[in-house]
Design a protein around this nucleic acid. Sequence first.
DNA 1: CGTAGGGCTGAAATTTTACTACGCATTTTG
DNA 2: CAAAATGCGTAGTAAAATTTCAGCCCTACG
Lengths: 275, 275
Amino acid sequence: MLGEINQSLGRLSRAEKQVAEWVLAHPREVAESTVAEVARAAATSEPSVIRFCRRIGLSGFRELTRRLTEALSRPDSLVHRDVGAGDSTADAVAKVLEAAIRSLVDLRGQLSKLPFDTVVRQMVHARQFVFAGLGASGHVASDASHKFFRLGTPCTALTDTPTIRQFAAIAGSGDVLFLISKNGNAAALCEAASIAGNNSAMVVAITDPNSRLAQAAAYTFACDAQEDTNIYTPRSSRLVHLTVLDALHVAAALALGDAAAENLRRCKDALAPPA
Amino acid sequence: MLGEINQSLGRLSRAEKQVAEWVLAHPREVAESTVAEVARAAATSEPSVIRFCRRIGLSGFRELTRRLTEALSRPDSLVHRDVGAGDSTADAVAKVLEAAIRSLVDLRGQLSKLPFDTVVRQMVHARQFVFAGLGASGHVASDASHKFFRLGTPCTALTDTPTIRQFAAIAGSGDVLFLISKNGNAAALCEAASIAGNNSAMVVAITDPNSRLAQAAAYTFACDAQEDTNIYTPRSSRLVHLTVLDALHVAAALALGDAAAENLRRCKDALAPPA
DNA sequence: CGTAGGGCTGAAATTTTACTACGCATTTTG
DNA sequence: CAAAATGCGTAGTAAAATTTCAGCCCTACG
C-alpha cells in the first residue's frame, strides 16, 4: 500500500504530492483522521485530498483509511526509520513502538535456532539460577531473578562486576549462570563465563551471536544487537532479552511439572488472596 | 477484539446484544458498513449501535470499524491460546512470544489516546523525574530512571512503599512522578498519587485505565491489564510499560532539544570512547 | 393494586464528515 | 502572445455519525 503510493508519486500534481508525502510520513495518524485534518496537515484543501485518493485508484477517503489500517496492522510490514530531530512527538512515539515490535518479530523468526530445549532440560535439575548483567541488562537480570524464584529454585541477580567475578569463582556443578549483555564485549562477563564454565557450571549467554561472550558461553541465545548509530534509538534489546527470559521461564515451569505449577499458584494467591 | 466483545456479551442489554451478535457473526461486513446498515441488519436502531460501541470501551462507530479491520487483517488471526501443561517447549515459547508481540501491537493501536504530547510538554520544564513501582514494576521504574537520567534532568526510582509515601509527602511543583503498576490497585500508590497531586507535583500513571490509580493521577497512560487467569502467563504488561517509557524518553529528548541531544551523545561516547 | 422511578429504546434533530460544483489562477501550447 | 487546459481552493451539498428527547417497559415499593 505505502509502496504503491510511493511509486505513483511521480504522476501526481503539486497539491496531491503534498498529500501523498504526509500520508507516507504519518500513515497511522491518517488512518484515524478526517479529511479536514489531513488537508490541514498537508497544507492544502479537502478536495485535493479526495482527488489524491481517486488518483491512486481508490474510491474515496474512507477506502484510504481502511487500506491504511489494514497495511499497518501487519506487524511485519513496518518500515523502520530512525527518529530524527525534526520529528513530532507522535512521530517519535510511533517509530519507537514500531522498532520494538520489529525486534520481537525478528526474534520470532529466529526461535527455532535458539537452544530453548537443551537449556530447559538442564535447568530442571539445577541447584540455583544466577542472572548477571551490567547497566540496563542489570535490570533485566533483576527482573528475571524476581520471576524465576517463583519456580522454587533458588535465584539471584548479580549486577556489578566484582560480584559477578566472585560468583564465577565459586560457581559449581548444578549452577546455571545466565549472562545478559547487549553486545557481549564486557571483559568481566567474558571472563566470568570461562571461569564458571571451567568450574563445571552451566553458562548461558543472552547476547549478540558474534560477540566474545557468545564464544565463551556453553549455550547462547542469539539476539542480534542492531547497531545504534542514532543517539535517540532506545535499547530494544532489553525487550528481546526480557522476552527470551519470559519464554525460558514458562518453558522451565512446564518442564518442572506439578511442583513448579503449585509454587506459581501459591505465588498468585499470595498477591490476591482468594476470598 | 472479537474475543473482548464475546466476553462482554453478558453485560449488554437486549438491543446491544443484537448488535454484538451481528458483529461477531459478520465482522468483515461490519468493517465496511455504515451505522445505518448495521442497525438495519441487527434489527435495531442507530443509537443502539453507537451505544454498543461505547459500552465495549470504544469512542464510537468509526473506531469499531477501524478495530475490526485491524483485527481481521492481522495475519495471525489465530486465537491466542494460553500455555497449558501439555505444551511442548517449542509451543510454549512460541505462545509467549506471540503474546508479547500482540500486546505491543495492541499498544500501537491505542497510541493516539495516550497523552504523550501533554506529558512531554510538561516534562521539559521539570525539576526532576521520579519513577515509582512495586514488584515487577519496580524493575521497570529502575530501568526508566537509568534511562531518563541521561537527558540531564535529575532522576530517581522508588521501589518500596515507605519511600514512595515519603516522596509523595515532600513532592512539589516541578516534580514529575510516574507511578507504574499493572492493575493499579495498590493502596500506597493511589495515596501517593493524591498526596503528590495536592502538593502540585505532576502525577502520571502508567497502569490499567479502570483502576483506582488511574483515577487518582492527573494523566494516565492506559495499558489494559489483561487478566491472567493462567498461572503460566508472563506479565506482558512489563513490556508495554517499558515501551511506553522508551517512547516517552525519546519524545522528551526531542522536546528538550540540543542540550539533551548533547547529553545523550556524551553518554554514548562514555560507553564506547571514540578512538 | 397503583404509582414513582430508573433504565432501555428508537424517532427525530444536530453535528460532523465526506464529497461535488464551479470559478479563478496558473501553466501550457500553438 | 493568446487560447486552452489543467489544477486549485471556496463554498455548497449529501450523507453519515452522534446527541437529544420523549415514550415505554419493567421493577420496587407504598
